[in-house]
């Protein structure tokens, strides 16, 4: 890539990160807690995403004002494949699932109707 100023190209990087964000938010099940009772939704996202990123992201894409964000870094599990009957082969077949971050957002109670099962 051409770097004419011999500096980090601030315009391109800023344009890509501000105007074209690339954050994945995946709703996961929050066991034992429902949205109707606690006004909280749990997401799964990358570890590099912070609380302010989630707030601005929800405001920009979904027009949802987020009151509070709680984040939890979850380490990936070390798993082992069962390969053969010998003990030595098990030692070489371990792998790790990817790390991720849980994000729990708390929204205004007036948004409860958005996720109700009634008709639109």
């Amino acid at each position: 890539m051409i770097n004419p100023l011999n500096k980090p190209v601030l315009g391109t990087r800023l344009m890509n990160s501000v105007f074209f964000p690339n954050i994945k938010l995946q709703v996961i099940r929050n066991s034992g807690k429902t949205f109707e009772n606690t006004n909280k939704i749990m997401f799964k996202t990358d570890c590099s995403v912070g609380k302010t990123d989630i707030k601005t992201y929800m405001k920009a894409l979904y027009d949802v004002n987020v009151d509070k964000v709680n984040t939890i870094n979850v380490q990936g599990r070390i798993k082992s494949k069962t390969k053969g009957l010998q003990k030595r082969s098990k030692l070489n077949s371990k792998y790790k699932t990817p790390d991720y971050k849980k994000a729990i957002i708390t929204v205004d109670p007036s948004l409860r109707a958005q996720l109700s099962r009634g008709k639109n």
């Binding site: 105007f19 074209f20 995946q26 709703v27």
Partner: peptide
Amino acid sequence: SFNDLHELWFELLKERNKLLTEKE
């Protein structure tokens, strides 16, 4: 234009989040 690409990008982000949630 840049506006159209910007809007399309946001729609694609929402579609991707929707698919990931459906997969879950």
